[in-house]
Design a protein around this nucleic acid. Structure first.
Lengths: 136, 136
DNA sequence: CAGGATCCGAGGCGATACTG
DNA sequence: CAGTATCGCCTCGGATCCTG
C-alpha cells in the first residue's frame, strides 16, 4: 500500500468516488481565505457588529478600496458575510458576519492565538536561519 | 474613542510601544503560511514521520520541484521543519517536523476540520451567489 | 537524488479616474 | 458613499536545463 497520494487535480471536477481527495481542494480554498490577510482582518473587525464600507476602509487603513471590494465580495460569495444595501442618498451598505462567518472566526482565532504565542520562537528561528544563510 | 485602528504598516519596523499592532504583521505572516496550499500539505504529510525530498514530491504529485524546495525552505526558516543532510552518494535529505511544527498542526487541523464540515454550506453559498450574479 | 539558475507567462494588487 | 473600469508594476509559480 503506497502512502497517501494527494492529488490536487485542477478544476476538472472528475468523478473520483466517495471520501475522495476532491475535498482537499475545497478545504484548501477555505484555508487560502485565511491566508488572505485582508479577509481575516475584515472578519475580525465584523465580529463586533455590522460595519459600513468606508468604515471598514478607515479601520484597516492601508487597504485599497479595490481590495476591500474584492475581499468583501469573496466573503459574501462564500456565505461568510451579508451585504445589505440601504437605497438612500447617499447610499449606505452594511456588511455583517453570518453565523457561518462567526463559526469560521472560532478556529481562526485559535490559530491566531497560537501564532501570537509562538511568534518569538518563529522570529527567532527566522533570525537564526537568515544569519546562517547570510554569512555561511 | 475611535474604533480599533488596524495599521498594517510595511516592513518599516517602527517603534510603536508595547502591545502594539506590530504583532498583527507577525501573526499575519503565520496565517499566510497556512494559506499557502503547499505548506499545509507538507506539514500534514510530515506528521507521520520524516520524509525525503522526492518522496514528498511524489506524494504531493502536482507540485514542481522548485515550489517544493521553496516551501521546505520557508518551513525550515520558520523553525517548523528540520532539514537533515546525509552526505552519502547519492545524497539523501530528510525533512522532519519540529515540535513547533507539530504544535502548529493542531490549530491547522482544527481549521481544516471546520472547513471540511462546512464545505457544503460554503459551496452552496458560492453556487447561489454565482447564480444570482450570472443571470441577474 | 536533491536542488540551483534561468526564462517567461498569468495573475495579484495598488493607483487613478469615473459613476449612480 | 460605495462602488466599477482601466492601467501598469511586480511577484508567483511552472517549465526547463544544469550540477555536486
Amino acid at each position: 500500500m503506497e502512502p497517501e497520494h494527494i492529488d490536487v487535480t485542477a478544476e476538472t471536477g472528475l468523478p473520483r468516488g466517495p471520501g475522495t481527495h476532491q475535498d482537499c481542494r475545497g478545504v484548501a480554498s477555505v484555508l487560502s481565505r485565511v491566508g488572505d490577510k485582508w479577509s481575516v482582518l475584515v472578519i475580525m473587525l465584523l465580529r463586533d457588529g455590522p460595519r459600513r464600507f468606508n468604515e471598514l476602509k478607515r479601520m484597516i487603513n492601508g487597504i485599497s478600496q479595490r481590495m476591500l471590494t474584492l475581499t468583501l465580495r469573496g466573503l459574501e460569495r462564500d456565505g461568510l458575510v451579508t451585504r445589505t444595501v440601504f437605497p438612500t442618498i447617499p447610499p449606505r451598505v452594511d456588511y455583517e458576519l453570518t453565523d457561518l462567518g462567526r463559526g469560521l472566526a472560532v478556529p481562526v482565532m485559535a490559530l491566531g492565538e497560537w501564532a501570537f504565542a509562538h511568534l518569538p520562537e518563529i522570529e527567532g528561528a527566522r533570525n537564526d536561519f537568515d544569519a546562517r544563510n547570510g554569512e555561511g
